[in-house]
């Protein structure tokens, strides 16, 4: 666990983003090409599809010290793999309920639909996510009871519900 949260004023939130290769990741590239400046708090991890997003990735990021997790997928109907984004939506909706039970505020996990041509939305999402997390403060997971073993992560089973 990192030593974040010691001085709240100088504290910078650390956010992990999981972006779909075909839309939001490319949108973030476009934001770069267009020199749209935004807060540097977010570290992007590329997935081929938001449908690849295992809820455990989000849990893992929180455990490793992320204060927030941002997920970017294709707009409904535009998924490069037909419907992976709907699966991501379902998983995140369920996961949010569980996070709340664990004391992790809803605002710490956000799903955005951003297409490859919407660099401005990437910029907005990056800034507003950083702002939200700054307001929420550091995530101090140590105070929250967590399962002891990785293998028994509560999201491991049943999240998909067999759909």
């Amino acid at each position: 666990m990192s030593d974040n949260g010691s001085v709240k004023n100088n504290w910078e939130p650390r956010i992990v983003a999981f972006f779909c290769n075909w839309c939001t990741y490319t949108g973030a590239d476009l934001a770069g090409i267009s020199r749209m400046q935004y807060r540097p708090n977010t570290r992007v991890i590329r997935l081929m599809c938001s449908g690849r997003l295992d809820p455990q990735f989000i849990m893992k990021a929180f455990r490793e010290g992320a204060d927030g997790v941002l997920v970017g997928g294709c707009h409904p109907g535009d998924c490069h793999y037909q419907e992976g984004n709907y699966k991501a939506l379902r998983r995140i909706t369920l996961l949010k309920k569980m996070l709340a039970q664990m004391g992790i505020e809803e605002g710490r996990l956000r799903l955005e639909w951003i297409s490859a041509s919407e660099g401005d939305l990437v910029q907005k999402a990056m800034n507003s996510m950083a702002e939200t997390i700054r307001e929420l403060g550091p995530l101090n997971l140590a105070e929250i009871p967590t399962p002891h073993s990785h293998d028994k992560e509560p999201v491991a089973a049943g999240v998909e519900g067999g759909a």
Partner: peptide, 11 residues
């Protein structure tokens, strides 16, 4: 096609 949806879902 390598979307990984099944991977994320496999319990």
């Amino acid at each position: 096609k390598g979307c990984g949806t099944c991977v994320a879902a496999c319990p």
